Amino acid sequence: MDHVIDSHHLFVYLPVRSAEGVLCAGAENRKSCKCRRARKGPSPDSIILSETIMSAENSLRIRRLEAVDTDRLVEIWFEASCQAHHFLPLEMLEQQRDLIRKVYLPRAETWVAVCKGKPAGFVSLLDCHIGGLFIDPAMQGSGIGRRLVDHASRDRSPLTVEVYEENAPALAFYKHLDFVAVGRRPLDDNGLPHPLIRMKRG
């Protein structure tokens, strides 16, 4: 069965293991906003994890998407989606690889988190809407998701996002960053019965 992607939908995905690896879904009904300057550690389970988090935080820089990033960002998207989207058909994700590469990334304003010289995650924006936030599964829990959202918020308020209702870690992540639920729709952008929660900050 073919799944048609709504033209307003930037990425079909969901988050992953940790709250900060989380991704949202859908850009349908996004409203224009007046962008203005807005506001800008997890508790580790071990000293080793703490050192890893500090290392990632200290070596992280955020920059705009470059053409050389595309292959790695598509892989990050796919790996995170396969790990998190247990309720979405794998063949649908496979089919969307080329759309992410050729349609969605080029249309969005994408910022890449680079750690030790390699892309570790990215956020893609449509005006003041987070169309996609993906973190390399191996780097989740190191604060990269929070840093990307804070970066996106610098010149945007309010900032909105849609999250699958079934993705409890993603909802918790955004609530922790002061997003509040402002709406719900029963179908995702593929017309599948996976409710989406619309959230807003600012």
Rank of each mutant, 00 (worst) to 15 (best):
F11L: 09
Y13E: 08
L14A: 11
L14F: 04
L14G: 08
P15K: 03
P15Y: 01
V16L: 14
V16E: 05
V16T: 13
V16N: 07
V16W: 04
V16H: 01
V16F: 09
R17P: 04
R17V: 06
S18N: 03
S18P: 00
S18C: 11
A19G: 01
E20G: 15
E20F: 09
G21N: 05
V22G: 12
L23T: 15
L23M: 06
C24L: 05
C24G: 15
C24H: 01
A25D: 13
A25F: 12
G26L: 01
G26D: 14
A27Y: 02
A27P: 01
A27I: 12
E28R: 14
E28V: 14
E28T: 05
N29L: 11
N29K: 11
R30F: 11
K31Y: 02
K31L: 07
S32Y: 04
S32E: 14
C33Q: 02
C33F: 00
C33P: 00
K34G: 15
C35L: 13
C35K: 06
C35V: 06
R36S: 15
R36I: 14
R36K: 12
R37W: 00
R37L: 10
R37M: 13
A38Y: 01
A38E: 09
A38C: 15
A38F: 02
A38M: 05
A38G: 06
A38T: 08
A38L: 14
R39Y: 11
R39M: 09
R39N: 07
K40Q: 10
K40F: 09
K40G: 08
K40Y: 07
G41N: 01
G41S: 09
G41V: 06
P42K: 08
P44T: 11
P44Y: 10
D45W: 04
D45R: 12
D45M: 11
D45Q: 05
S46L: 04
S46V: 03
I47V: 07
I47S: 10
I47Y: 07
I48H: 08
L49W: 01
S50F: 08
S50Y: 05
S50E: 15
S50H: 06
E51I: 05
E51S: 05
E51D: 11
E51W: 06
T52R: 13
T52F: 05
T52Q: 11
I53C: 02
M54P: 06
M54N: 09
S55I: 01
S55K: 15
A56C: 12
A56L: 13
A56K: 08
A56G: 03
E57L: 04
N58L: 05
S59E: 15
L60G: 00
L60S: 05
L60Q: 12
L60H: 01
R61V: 10
R61D: 13
R61F: 15
R61I: 10
I62T: 04
I62R: 03
I62V: 08
I62H: 05
I62Q: 03
R63E: 10
R63Q: 12
R63C: 14
R64G: 12
R64C: 08
R64P: 08
L65G: 06
L65Q: 05
L65S: 08
E66A: 06
E66Q: 13
E66V: 15
A67W: 11
A67H: 09
V68F: 03
D69L: 03
D69R: 00
D69Q: 02
D69P: 04
T70L: 10
T70W: 00
T70H: 02
T70R: 13
T70V: 06
D71T: 14
D71L: 14
